[in-house]
Computed example of a mutant assay.
Amino acid sequence: MTQIIAALSDVSDRYEVLFVDLWGCVHDGVRAFPAAVAALQRYRANGGTVVLVTNSPKPRLGVATQMRGFGVPDDAYDTIATSGDSARAAMFEGVVGEKVWFMGEWERDHEFFEPIHVIHDPVAITRVPLDEAKGIVCCGPFDPMADPAVNRPEFLLAKQKGLKLLCANPDIVVDRGETREWCAGALARLYSEMGGESLYFGKPHPPIYDLARRRLAEMGRDAGNAAILAIGDGIHTDIAGAMGEDIDSLFITGGLSARETATSEQPEPAALTRFLATEQSNPTYAIGQLR
């Protein structure tokens, strides 16, 4: 049964490593959550290692730059594993072909196409119109406020052509401040529902956890599953991923599921129990906000 805790410090001494989600846990897409930052700084000061594991389609350097803009200091974490880096590696290995139709906001997502050093003989990727494409690279919707169904005509053509869709961010929605936006995962889900093939690399899928462990290895660290705690507000991404990896999890109820769990300062226990039963999920711990 999920245990509601008052602070990360109630359980953090049981774990050597934290896999921490960003959006909804450490920042809201506009600014950092001071209590969350302080909690991670304390954990690191006591010898713990913090790996930020995010479904952002950005490379890790892009995420680091973005976080500084939000007010998240560098001493709040040790390293970063992004869905974008995991998906980029696959793209440069040619999983969706050399000629790709790109979905996203180019000004924001252009870093996705920059070379990645872990691939020694990368495929030369060219962005082309859909009718010339051999695959789709999806970093997000063209308009994050538009219903994903607006993409049905293009997806019908893509399915008929047998194109695979590489999804750089499996999140369905995200809250930017007070505004809820659609993410790449919503488009990949629609494409799959229409009979197309979508490839996922972020939470809850294994590739991003493999990348997180490689990031630990780069630091000379190694931790077994029992020594890792995953933290996040996505019941279908962060928590489902942790359960699939057989690692403990801390569910941040005041993020995407604040209404369902009746969270103000803390989740209402009965509401949390109902929500988890409906979702068939069993996080190890729960808390209103990371602190």
Results as ranks from 00 to 15, higher is better:
134 K>V: 06
219 M>A: 08
129 P>M: 15
125 I>F: 11
133 A>V: 02
229 L>T: 01
234 G>I: 09
143 D>E: 03
165 L>D: 02
142 F>Q: 07
211 L>H: 01
164 K>R: 09
232 G>A: 11
171 D>F: 08
149 A>F: 15
177 G>C: 11
178 E>Q: 10
138 C>L: 05
182 W>E: 03
172 I>L: 07
170 P>Q: 04
180 R>H: 10
172 I>T: 02
223 A>S: 09
188 A>V: 02
185 G>Q: 10
173 V>G: 04
181 E>H: 15
218 E>H: 11
233 D>R: 12
196 G>Y: 11
186 A>Y: 07
197 E>V: 06
192 S>L: 13
218 E>S: 04
201 F>E: 00
227 A>T: 01
127 R>L: 13
211 L>Y: 07
190 L>Y: 06
228 I>T: 03
233 D>L: 14
234 G>W: 08
188 A>T: 08
196 G>F: 07
229 L>Y: 06
198 S>M: 13
228 I>K: 04
168 A>C: 13
180 R>K: 10
128 V>L: 10
223 A>K: 12
134 K>N: 08
175 D>S: 14
142 F>W: 08
175 D>H: 15
124 A>T: 13
234 G>P: 00
226 A>D: 04
220 G>W: 12
230 A>E: 00
143 D>K: 10
194 M>A: 07
206 P>E: 13
223 A>T: 07
180 R>N: 05
149 A>Y: 10
205 H>Q: 05
141 P>F: 12
134 K>P: 00
186 A>V: 08
232 G>S: 11
130 L>V: 03
201 F>Q: 00
190 L>Q: 08
205 H>C: 09
197 E>N: 09
140 G>R: 04
151 N>T: 12
202 G>E: 04
125 I>S: 03
211 L>I: 02
167 C>F: 07
226 A>R: 11
162 G>S: 05
160 Q>I: 06
144 P>D: 12
183 C>N: 04
189 R>H: 13
138 C>G: 01
137 V>H: 04
160 Q>R: 13
136 I>V: 09
